[in-house]
Simulated assay, not measured.
Amino acid sequence: MYRVVRGIQPVGQGTFYTEIHNIKAGDEHCVVFDCGSKGGMECLEKSIKDTFIKDQVIDALVISHFDKDHVNGIVHLDKRCKIRNIVIPQFSNRKWFYIVADFVSRGGRSVNMDVCNLTIFRRRGIRTIEVKPMDDEDRGNGERTIELSLEGGESITISSGTRIKLLGSINGNDSNAKWMYMPINCTLGKDIARLEAKLNAVVNGFASLSADAMKNAIENHGGDINKAYKDVFGNSNASSLCLYSGLDDARLQIPLCIYSTALYWRRNGNSTEACLYTGDSELRNLTKLSCIDRMLGTLKMRIGLVQIPHHGSIENTDTGIFDLFLNRIMIFFMSYGIGNKYGHPSQYLIDMLRIKNNRVVEVTQEKRYVEMIEIG
Score class of each variant (00 low, 15 high):
A177H: 05
K46Q: 13
K132N: 15
V32N: 09
L289H: 09
D280V: 03
A217W: 04
S110F: 07
I126G: 10
T187Y: 06
R267M: 03
L286P: 08
R284Q: 14
N226M: 04
G40F: 01
F233D: 11
E45M: 02
T187C: 09
L118D: 13
V32Y: 09
D78R: 08
R84F: 04
K356W: 06
G73P: 01
V75L: 07
N85I: 01
T278D: 11
V360T: 07
G279V: 03
G246A: 05
S335Q: 15
N173Y: 00
N173L: 00
G36M: 03
N204Y: 07
N220T: 14
V31A: 13
K49P: 02
R354I: 09
D59P: 00
D280W: 00
L247M: 15
P345M: 03
D212H: 08
D249T: 03
K178I: 04
L252E: 08
L150K: 12
G320V: 10
E273L: 11
P345A: 06
K24L: 00
P89L: 02
V100S: 09
G339E: 09
G312H: 05
V31P: 07
A217V: 03
Y277R: 04
Y336G: 06
Q347Y: 11
C43R: 14
V111I: 10
M334H: 14
R302M: 10
I184V: 06
V115N: 13
N270A: 09
M301A: 08
C43T: 13
K49H: 07
L195E: 12
Y244A: 05
K82P: 00
G140K: 02
N200L: 02
I192W: 06
G14C: 08
A211E: 15
R163H: 07
V87E: 05
G108K: 04
T261E: 07
N327W: 11
K341N: 12
V370D: 10
I225V: 05
E273D: 15
L324E: 11
L326E: 14
E19D: 15
T364I: 00
G223Q: 03
Q253F: 11
G12Y: 00
K288W: 01
E19M: 11
G172H: 12
E137H: 08
E196W: 03
A197G: 12
S240V: 02
L324Q: 12
E143L: 03
V87P: 08
N268T: 02
R3H: 06
K198L: 03
A193W: 14
F325D: 02
M352Q: 14
Q9G: 01
L167H: 05
N72W: 00
A211Q: 13
D67F: 12
M113I: 06
I292A: 13
C291R: 13
E137D: 10
Y181F: 01
R194K: 15
A250G: 10
S239Y: 05
L296D: 10
D323N: 14
K132E: 15
H310D: 14
V62A: 05
V306C: 00
S290M: 09
